[in-house]
Design a protein around this nucleic acid. Structure first.
Length: 355
DNA sequence: TAGGCCATCTGGTCCT
DNA sequence: AGGACCAGATGGCCTA
């Protein structure tokens, strides 16, 4: 069966390969390199610079005329058919090999730097999407997906000019995300909501947010449930699903049946900026208040004025922001209206969120 | 152990 | 010519 398959397919493959070789002959090195890569032994693969340098030196048109040497023949699998025409191959002298190695090393260094820059930009993006943890980073692809969803969600809020309920918000944020990321995001939302509610009810509306960007009823309901042990634990350890069931709060119920666990020591819901649904500060802010940083923030949301569900406090009035190393972290939201006595320094607040 | 994620190397292509 | 960008390949690490 297999042999029959080979006998039928192989000629076609060989013919296609031959066509391809002819098409690419003008490219000079490419066919040969590919050919060599296919047939190189392990020793050859350990020194990939060889093929690279050959290709590069050919492309560069080295002028070492005395290096002009025999044209290396590219022989097909049968070993009987010289394929190569095109530019003659130049023999690699030690000097040319050395130059090529240097070029390759420089190119590698540049590529590393480029990827590091890309990764640091991605890190900055992680910090401004609704779920951030230093120890449990979102993967690159999930970061991009969440960022996209976040932008769409904010755009939706602006377009509709009304507060979405948390169910809708979570659904928008988690659209297309993997189950673990969905759990994480929902956990961030749940924890921040819980923290806010705990504080709010504990100290008598200290962080009263008259204009939450979201529908109020879930919080009211949750607040009324604060006597539940779930809410009094003060720990991030909780089973979200059980929590949701017991509270009747389906907003973060996770489709897919997975019961998210947030009692992992690595989970840092507190680090998540802002998925403060209330638009205010969560546990960290309580600390800051206790440390004589008693800012009173309230976010106004109505019509085109919106608080940022995730990052409500990164801006001073009129969108002004403190400069410095974190400036890249701040998305260009200029329509955020803050109502507080004095503008909190961005770095300070950022430190609260991202300790 | 398989699968996911990541860093790195590499060659090709395009642009300045 | 050289740099930027891209995508494929590869190997390491981690987790379920």
């Amino acid at each position: 069966m297999l042999s029959r398959l080979f006998s039928e397919v192989l000629p076609d493959v060989q013919r296609l390969a031959a066509d391809w070789v002819e098409d690419d002959e003008s490219d000079g090195c490419k066919v040969k390199d590919e050919h060599e890569r296919c047939h190189l032994g392990d020793d050859d693969l350990d020194e990939p610079q060889e093929g690279s340098s050959r290709a590069e030196s050919e492309m560069a048109g080295d002028d070492d005329e005395d290096d002009e040497a025999e044209e290396e023949e590219c022989v097909d699998e049968n070993g009987d058919k010289p394929k190569k025409r095109g530019p003659k191959k130049r023999k690699m002298t030690a000097a040319r090999v050395e130059r090529s190695k240097v070029r390759r090393m420089k190119a590698n260094a540049r590529e590393r730097t480029r990827m590091h820059d890309l990764n640091s930009a991605l890190d900055n993006l992680r910090k401004v999407v609704p779920c951030y943890s230093k120890t449990q980073k979102l993967s690159k692809i999930e970061t991009l997906r969440l960022a996209k969803n976040y932008i769409l969600a904010l755009g939706e809020i602006l377009r509709n000019g009304k507060r979405p309920d948390v169910v809708t918000y979570v659904q928008m944020l988690c659209k297309g995300l993997s189950q673990p990321t969905t759990n994480l995001v929902a956990g961030c939302l749940q924890l921040n909501t819980r923290n806010f509610l705990t504080e709010q009810c504990a100290d008598g509306s200290r962080f009263h947010m008259p204009s939450s960007p979201f529908s109020v009823h879930p919080y009211s309901y949750r607040c009324s449930r604060l006597s539940s042990p779930h809410y009094q634990s003060g720990s991030s350890a909780m089973n979200l699903r059980a929590h949701s069931y017991s509270s009747g709060y389906e907003g973060v119920y996770l489709p897919g049946g997975t019961s998210p666990e947030y009692n992992s020591p690595d989970y840092e819901g507190q680090h998540s900026p802002p998925v403060c649904l209330n638009g205010g500060l969560s546990g960290k802010q309580q600390e800051s208040s206790d440390n004589d940083r008693n800012y009173h923030y309230s976010m106004h949301y109505s019509g085109l004025t919106t608080s940022r569900p995730g990052h409500s406090l990164h801006f001073g009035p009129s969108g002004a922001r403190s400069g410095g190393a974190h400036s890249e972290n701040i998305p260009p939201f200029h329509d955020v209206h803050l109502h507080h006595d004095r503008a909190p320094p961005y770095e300070e607040l950022n430190a609260f969120f991202h300790n």
